[in-house]
Amino acid sequence: MTAVTRRRPRSRQAAPAVRAPRLNGRRLAPYLFVVPALLLFAVFKLYPIGWSFLLSLHKTVQGVDTFVGLDNYTRLVHDPLFWTALQNTAVILVVPHRPYDRPAPGHAPARSAPPAGTEDGTGPAAEQRVKHKAEHLTKGWA
Rank of each mutant, 00 (worst) to 15 (best):
K139W: 15
S112M: 12
V4S: 12
T89L: 13
R19K: 10
F33I: 05
G25C: 09
A20L: 12
W83G: 00
V61Q: 01
V68M: 00
A29N: 15
F33P: 00
A125C: 02
L55H: 13
V43A: 11
V130E: 08
P109E: 00
T60V: 13
F67P: 00
Q87Y: 14
G69F: 07
E135D: 14
S52F: 08
H58F: 13
R8N: 13
T84D: 04
P36Q: 01
V61I: 14
Y47Q: 02
R12F: 07
L137R: 11
V64L: 11
A42D: 08
V95A: 04
Q87E: 11
V68N: 01
P96N: 06
Q128H: 11
P21Y: 04
N72E: 01
S112A: 13
P96W: 15
D120P: 01
R26T: 11
T118E: 00
G106M: 01
H78I: 09
F44S: 09
R12V: 04
D120F: 14
F82D: 03
L32Q: 01
P114M: 03
N72G: 00
P96I: 02
D71Y: 07
W51S: 08
R6E: 10
G140C: 12
L40K: 11
D65E: 11
L38M: 12
A3N: 06
P99S: 06
A15R: 04
Q62S: 15
W83A: 00
P105S: 01
P103E: 03
P80Y: 06
Y100D: 09
P21E: 05
L93V: 08
P16V: 02
A37P: 00
